[in-house]
Design a protein around this nucleic acid. Structure first.
Lengths: 338, 338
DNA sequence: CTGAAAGCGCTTACAG
DNA sequence: CTGAAAGCGCTTACAG
């Protein structure tokens, strides 16, 4: 392995000067810069991150903590990760995906090892035990999602209110008056405090009332099968339904295919509009779903940037809420005239 | 931060003894063990991985290099990653997911930093430029997949021959004689040397000939849309078809839904059997697909274990090939009697 | 603008 | 079985 010592010797300088140049921490004359750069090129030097981390007490590694056991890692999670990794790399950080349990045991182990400078927390619950661990160990972190208590916590999240408002406005504008929300299952212990479920459903109840619409909510777990069953249930109990909004990504696929197999024309008879879906998931459906496109890439980037600002001691950005945006597909249309 | 020094002082021993205990590298008497363990507990000590890495010249970090740009990260990749991370943790290693380009630029940067002890390479191409980089830099690595040249390279892969043989035997046993393979698109530059495409198609051509069957192959990209188009094309050109095998995961979804929307009864008229699919993908289809379940978890585990054996200097295991296994669903049945 | 030196928190021969 | 000490490859006051 070629070290800074080797470079310094060949360039005829001290290792301090090499370090100053590499980190751009002190000015170096053009002449010595040239000698050092030539030496590095000739020797094929590259800096040892481990030694740098030990000496500087900064590893420049950020962990994205993902509750792998409780949440499947699908297209949406991949979007988060990819955009976060890109954002980190731009600022000379490495972002790694770290599977952790929701209870925080692995997370505690991870931050104890001094291996990461900070943590981006995904799939934050309203009362997330992982937050307490990070606070107690004074680990810098940013949340994608929100706990109930937010005092001073760096976070970004989906703007559920605006997402639902835009979705309802869109369907209302098409002429729909008989809407149904297929919500998440808060009775499932893994999701009993799941912010997106709670906030989306609350927003829907408020907004549908504002429009003077009947508020009908049916529940589905996040899988195709359950979405299909929800579709059957809701058409049985509410046969006048002309448009369905769906919170869960995979339930959304199931609602669309379930309506199809029940013989309903989508969107001729019933429109389907998932509220938080990745485009790659939407493309799995046939016809391709009209969706409120989940802002995964934006959130991954903003969450990472918020964390890095903390790490660099810059002023914190105010929390940002990003709405999902309408992405046209083939599952929404005006209701059939009666 | 509480260091080994603090623990040693409190326990009245030297830091060397603490280290010997922690690493189990030298015997320690029961009495001192107890004192050290108590001191660690009282102080809440946890070892600094960075210092350990620098001193031992081993970071105990393994990177799983994933070509994020060229391959979407879906359920199959998530299976690899999760099982590999679990296997690594069992042996006191950390496995991190590292997005890299297929050309190897980021990979070169990564291994130059001395941040990882080794690399698990996913989505290996038949002539993968990343392999040369790892060899040149003498970085230990294991491949999930195979290059053409395999001399001395640690690898695990799918047993494509057995997978196809089992799939054809199963359909043949049900009575099918008019099979079609929906293969991958080798004309796509991102996949022109994609081992799974090449090997699966070759296996199919050989095996269908052995059964005395007509060998019919149509091509599809790996998305739902393309799979649907392939379904339409193959039923138009080969209306006698009673069973379809599909290489690509998302094309498999499209073939099934495409047949449905063309009015074919699946599996009454046409059986559909994807050759390499994750169960979570199969569950997205309706009815749920019968699949050859891709051995993602096994490969992730075996690839990681193979790498760790290298890192620990243990004798290499022979390369292992794991077949996909039939997982019953609702898209295969005997052909309709004619 | 550059350098000598201490130090980051461990591991590991070496000695006893 | 235990310890003193060198060293891993850097960064960073401090001094000039």
């Amino acid at each position: 392995m070629v070290t800074m010592r080797d470079v310094a010797d060949r360039a005829g300088v001290s290792i301090a000067t090499v370090s100053f140049l590499l980190n751009d921490t002190k000015p170096v004359t053009e002449a010595t810069r040239a000698r050092i750069e030539q030496a590095m090129a000739e020797l094929g030097y590259s800096r040892n991150m481990v030694a740098r981390a030990l000496a500087s007490r900064r590893t420049r590694i950020i962990a994205m903590a993902y509750p792998a056991l409780d949440h499947r890692f699908g297209f949406s999670a991949a979007e988060f990760f990819t955009s976060a990794a890109t954002a980190a790399r731009k600022q000379d950080y490495h972002l790694v995906l770290w599977p952790v349990g929701n209870d925080g045991a692995e997370l505690h182990e991870l931050v104890g090892e001094s291996l990461v400078d900070g943590v981006v927390l995904m799939e934050v619950q309203l009362d997330d035990p992982r937050v307490a661990i990070l606070q107690r160990t004074r680990t810098p972190f940013a949340m994608i999602g929100r706990t109930t208590e937010l005092e001073g916590l760096s976070h970004v999240d989906i703007d559920f209110d605006k997402t639902v408002a835009d979705a309802v406005a869109y369907l209302y504008g098409l002429g729909h008056r008989n809407l149904v929300l297929v919500a998440g299952d808060l009775a499932d212990p893994r999701f009993h405090n799941h912010g997106p479920y709670v906030r989306t459903e609350a927003a829907y109840r408020r907004i549908s009332a504002e429009y003077g619409l009947q508020t009908i909510v049916v529940v589905s777990a996040d899988n195709t099968q359950s979405g299909q069953e929800a579709a059957a249930r809701l058409m049985r109990d509410h046969p006048d339904t002309t448009a369905v909004l769906v919170i869960n990504e995979y339930a959304g696929l199931g609602v669309a295919s379930g309506l199809n197999r029940l013989g309903y024309d989508v969107p001729g008879e019933v429109s389907v509009l998932p509220l938080l879906m990745a485009p790659e998931t939407a493309a799995l459906s046939n016809p391709e779903l009209t969706i409120m496109r989940a802002p995964g890439p934006e959130l991954g980037q903003l969450g990472t940037e918020a964390l890095i600002r903390q790490l660099e001691g810059a002023a914190a950005l105010p929390p940002q809420l990003i709405p999902a945006k309408l992405q046209p597909g083939s599952t929404t249309a005006p209701p059939r005239p009666t």
